[in-house]
């Protein structure tokens, strides 16, 4: 079972290592992990897709929540959300087959972003299914390289996964 976790973290050195290390140390499998700055430069958001049963997901969430750099964690799998991935695919493209490739690119509303004598780079965004589909459609031509960002996600509607945190504001 794949779950999508949206995690707000403090933008501090080592936080990515901490999160990634936690997964490997405790034997959890990361499907993908995407990280970037939020509207607040001191806070980053990680979108983590993790594979595991309910008990594993619960442990992952609790262990992540224990990290001091983790401000807030939400499992948004079951909430309506927009989930996107970006992929760059370098595919073999002899002049004779370029037309066919361009048709596929159109169907998936992808774009050609680079062209060489015998190859193209195609850029596509979409959910994981769509990215898998375009990859499969291009495979017969010979894929040379694939670079995927991993999923990023945002809740639909006006709701946000805001910064309202409940941590310690005061010391002794």
């Amino acid at each position: 079972m794949k779950r999508t976790l949206s995690v707000l973290v403090e933008n501090r050195p080592g936080v990515l290592t901490r999160v990634a290390g936690l997964f490997s140390r405790r034997g959890y499998n990361i499907d993908s992990l995407a990280v970037g700055r939020t509207e607040n430069p001191s806070i980053s958001r990680m979108t983590i897709v993790v594979d595991g049963d309910e008990q594993i997901i619960e442990q992952v969430s609790k262990q992540l929540n224990k990290l001091i750099d983790v401000i807030k964690l939400s499992d948004i799998t079951d909430d309506p959300h927009v989930g996107r991935e970006l992929v760059l695919i370098k595919v073999n493209a002899e002049p004779a087959v370029r037309g066919e490739i361009m048709q596929i690119v159109d169907i998936f509303r992808a774009r050609i972003v680079d062209i060489a004598r015998n190859s193209l780079i195609i850029e596509a965004t979409g959910d994981a299914d769509k990215i898998d589909a375009i990859e499969n459609s291009l495979r017969p031509f010979g894929i040379r390289e694939v670079v995927r960002t991993g999923k990023i996600a945002m809740l639909r509607g006006a709701k946000t996964r805001g910064m309202e945190a409940s941590g310690d504001g005061a010391g002794e």
Binding site: I68, K72, G169
Partner: peptide, 12 residues
């Protein structure tokens, strides 16, 4: 600083 800013840490 008398107050710490630890938004991701809940001790109580």
């Amino acid at each position: 600083p008398p107050r710490l800013h630890l938004p991701g840490y809940r001790s109580r």
